[in-house]
Structure formats: C-alpha cells, structure tokens
Amino acid sequence: MTAERSNHDRTTAEPSGSTHVTGDRSIVAFCCRECAYAAADASANARTSLPPSVRLVLVPCTGRVSPLHLVTALAEGADGVMVAGCLLGQCHYREGNFNAVDRVAFVQRLLESVGVEPERCRMFTMSAGEPPKFVAAVKEMDRVIGALPPLQRHDTSMSEDAGDAAEPAKAAVRTRAATPAKAAAATRGAA
C-alpha cells in the first residue's frame, strides 16, 4: 500500500483544463480492494499521474462504506468523497456495491436536503483491469469539486446554546422542539 501511495503523493502535475490550484481541496476516495484499489495500483505502476487532491482509502468492499463515513469525511475537511467499486454484478461479495450505490444515493439526498451540492458524493464503478477509467473518474471528480464553491463548516459545538445569533449559518439549523420534548419526557418519567 505504501508504494503506490508514495507514487501518488509525488504527482504534482496539474490536471488539464483545471483553473484552480489543486492543493486547496481534498477528495477522499473509498476504493474497493478487489477492483478500484487494484486499478489505482496499476495506474501508479504505469506512472500515471493522479490529481494531488485525492486521498485513497482502502476498504475491503464498497459495501463497508456507510453514510457515516461519507458525511464524516465531508465534515472533517474533505471537499468531495467518491466511492469506487466493482462493476455492478461483479462484486467480490456478490452485492456489496449495490448497497454502496444506494447508500451514496441516500447521502446525496441527505446533502441536498441540507443545502449542500449532491455532486460532492459520487459513486464510480470499474474493474480491476481499467486503470484509465479510475484515473478518469478521479479527474472528473476533481474537476467537479474544483468548480464548486468551498464547503463551509461550522463549529463542532453545535449544542444547546444555539440562541446566540452571532453566526447565522449556525443558527440556521437549530434543534427542533428540544425543550418541549424533554419536558414531556421528564413529566412522563415522574408520573
């Protein structure tokens, strides 16, 4: 794993057609061990350059990737997440990538519902013998993310003291009916 990682980290070539500096964004790619990671490995061995924004995460199967992984990656600093798995119907574990397709679709709807561009989370499928397809997918993702406005993140302390309207983005999402629910629970617990 270290060899191709270091190869990818050395690549500094600018992807063609990109007008942004690629160093200021990061894309997390969850790669299936059977297909996409093997394709990434082969592309590194062929000395193909990847956009430097991409970080590869090896997973045994894309069915392991949960919405929590994808959204947490976005919240912790990634500008885009991509899930790269096997061709549909060719999953090593039979149907892991079908699960991943639906989870990615779910995360896209989740992002859309809170006002974030759903293009920040995408699913790609490829076989192990298609390194160019992997490189094309990463470059496509890098191009799409580079065209989007930067993703703003609020403080981690999105807690009860949302009353201060100093930060409007933070106050935009407040807790829904927190106090009546807790009061109801307290009264019912006492009864």
Partner: peptide
C-alpha cells in the same frame, strides 16, 4: 455522529 457531521456542513434546514 452522523447528525453532528451533517450539522457541520449544513447550509439550511431540511425542508421535508
């Protein structure tokens, strides 16, 4: 955990 992560990047309230 998922909700906290979603809150960090949320730009508006979910409509429905």
């Amino acid at each position: 955990a998922l909700g906290a992560a979603l809150r960090r990047i949320a730009r508006r309230e979910p409509a429905g």
